[in-house]
């Protein structure tokens, strides 16, 4: 098992955002987190990446308790890649520098080798000619693909994707989803929060439905999305269908 969350609790003041949440992700598995806005999807991903402290429970990566206060969070994050809804590229750096920053500074790899690898990646996702552009000259879909490459060049064990397409125009969503599908075929382990039910059905091995910070239902996509057992899940999916997103 690559990642396991055991009885995780997270509160903001008096609001309980994650409540006794448990979740397991095997190597090479793709898990889709679905659920209404505010159900805790982003918070869970941020907790796994140690961007915020949890209030109870344990999170393990490769069996190691990463929520132990003696663990160095920087070292843990080096093994986890994360991509955000709003891309969060560094605006003062070219695309190439955005990608090579962490490999060179954190992983202490040679600049030439990293550059070579970054250019190969950019070429693969059709952005070879953008290497020296600044992020504000790129479309949303291009920026998001750069952000994914930026996470991938560090060869993470686990990739966390937080609604990576929801800031994009419909015609740009496809190019990002194609890239993620390619990663799945290569065996990348991913946890992705998404509102794209069609995509979750295609790419996920398991779909996890979060409701009020708890896992209400989890299972293969056909079951959770096609034949949910819980009334809340059915309600949620009905609303999604109404909005034309399934």
């Amino acid at each position: 098992m690559l990642l396991s969350c055991e009885h995780v609790r997270k509160t903001f003041g008096s609001a309980v955002v994650l409540d006794d949440l448990s979740l397991e992700v095997d190597e090479h598995q793709v898990v889709a987190l679905i659920g209404a806005s505010g159900s805790g999807k982003s918070t869970l991903l941020r907790c796994v990446n140690l961007l915020t402290d949890i209030d109870d429970g344990t999170i393990r990566l490769d069996g190691e308790d990463i929520t132990d206060p003696r663990v160095n969070p920087d070292e843990v994050r080096q093994r986890i890649g994360m991509v955000f809804q709003s891309y969060n590229l560094f605006p003062h750096m070219t695309v190439l520098r955005n990608i090579t920053l962490a490999p060179v500074r954190v992983h202490k790899r040679s600049a030439a080798e990293t550059r070579e690898q970054a250019l190969q990646w950019l070429d693969r996702v059709g952005l070879a000619d953008k290497a020296d552009s600044y992020p504000d000259r790129l479309s949303g879909g291009q920026q998001q693909r750069v952000a994914i490459v930026r996470a991938l060049v560090n060869s993470p064990r686990l990739l966390l994707l937080d609604e990576v397409t929801s800031a994009l125009d419909p015609e740009l969503v496809g190019e990002v989803l194609t890239m993620i599908r390619g990663l799945k075929d290569e065996g990348m382990t991913m946890v992705l929060a998404t509102h794209e039910m069609g995509f979750a059905r295609q790419v996920a091995d398991r779909v996890v439905f979060l409701d009020g910070g708890r896992v209400l239902e989890a299972g293969p996509p056909e079951q959770v999305l096609g034949d949910p057992t819980e009334a809340r899940t059915r309600q949620f999916l009905a609303r999604i269908i109404e909005a034309g997103r399934l």
């Binding site: 941020r46 990446n49 961007l51 920087d74 070292e75 994050r77 080096q78 986890i80 890649g81 994360m82 955000f84 709003s86 969060n88 590229l89 560094f90 920053l101 962490a102 500074r105 954190v106 992983h107 930026r150 996470a151 560090n154």
Partner: peptide
């Protein structure tokens, strides 16, 4: 703050 989050998520100290 999202810039900080992005940098820290890459493992930068």
């Amino acid at each position: 703050p999202s810039q900080l989050a992005a940098a820290r998520s890459l493992g930068l100290t």
